[in-house]
């Protein structure tokens, strides 16, 4: 009995030793020389491997940084300035702070604003739907509502609101990795400046159709009237292809345009609520039903975003 045990122990030990020696030499032979800095940087990274920076993952990001020797072309949207500072420190560099960004849904075509014209019965995917036809509403540009963006988000920061049929971004969870913007076949989602105190003003519509067509498809469409552009004291708003765009680098958040928009397509979020009165005097320009709806619209987005 004991001899069997001894034989077993000895033979297995010898085998183990032999293999260890073989492994040692193989490891020596096939060793890959790598800059230890890559490992250091990778350890600093958030490790989400989301690809938001444009690299294949966090390690690829680290490799790219080390290879370039500077951080000019690299930025980790997930980790933000905190992480970038650490990375810069590890590399012995200084880095300029970047303003934090957030994903913004530029469509206001909720079920109430934009009536459905057909019922989509195919596979529930915006990409599939987009390849089939312009959409199940009169609007060719707006959100398709199948939630490809929510599936693309790795951080659970974007979800579909069953009531409006539109995606809602949770600004606290959003890392501005841009996956949702890439997933959206209509290009409805934009990465914008997060803003001071999270305050943002943006045009929540990208409909390039002429005013009447856009308006017919959706009550809250930008009709390209250009009033906002005229009102804006900072020349931050441009109207091109029948749709207004607010340049967030120029916008000073005066929110004058919000009150001016006849369809309520311009949203101001996270501003303290204020009396809806200023909207009333411009009744002559807006269609009869608008003022009431408009007053609501100024307040509505604030309420929506606060729930997040």
């Amino acid at each position: 009995m004991s001899t069997i045990i001894i034989y077993t122990v000895v033979s297995l030990s010898l085998l183990g030793l032999l293999l260890a020696v073989v492994l040692y030499f193989v490891a020596q032979k096939f060793k890959v020389e790598e800059n230890p800095l890559i490992d250091t940087i990778e350890a600093i990274m958030p490790g989400a491997n989301c690809g938001g920076c444009g690299n294949a993952g966090c390690r690829a990001f680290a490799e790219a940084c080390v290879k370039a020797g500077n951080l000019d072309a690299q930025f980790c949207p997930v980790g933000g300035n905190e992480t970038m500072k650490k990375v810069a420190a590890a590399m012995g560099l200084e880095v300029a702070e970047k303003a934090p960004m957030v994903a913004v849904v530029r469509c206001n075509g909720s079920c109430a604003n934009r009536a459905k014209t057909t019922t989509y019965d195919g596979y529930k995917s915006c990409a599939v739907m987009n390849s089939l036809y312009p959409g199940d509403t009169g609007c060719r540009y707006g959100c398709l509502g199948c939630g490809d963006c929510t599936n693309a988000c790795q951080f659970g920061a974007i979800s579909m609101d069953p009531e409006t049929g539109l995606p809602v971004v949770d600004q606290d969870k959003c890392t501005a990795c841009g996956a949702c913007a890439k997933a959206c076949p209509k290009g409805v989602i934009e990465l914008r400046n997060k803003g001071i105190k999270n305050r943002r003003v943006f045009v929540s519509c990208i409909n390039k159709d002429k005013g009447a067509v856009a308006r017919k498809a959706c009550k809250a469409a930008c009709i390209g009237c250009g009033k906002c552009a005229k009102t804006c004291p900072f020349e931050a708003i441009t109207v091109e292809n029948n749709v207004a765009y607010i340049d967030y680098t120029k916008c000073k958040m005066c929110t004058k345009c919000v009150a001016e928009c006849p369809t309520g397509a311009i949203h101001a979020v996270n501003f303290p609520p204020r009396p809806a009165a200023p909207a009333a005097p411009k009744a002559p320009v807006t269609p009869a039903a608008a003022p009431a709806a408009e007053a609501k619209k100024v307040a509505e987005p604030i309420a929506v975003e606060k729930n997040n």
Binding site: S125, V128, S131
Partner: peptide
């Protein structure tokens, strides 16, 4: 399963 919906998109 709507196989072709996804395959068509994949093919394109």
């Amino acid at each position: 399963i709507p196989l072709l919906d996804n395959i068509r998109l994949g093919k394109a």
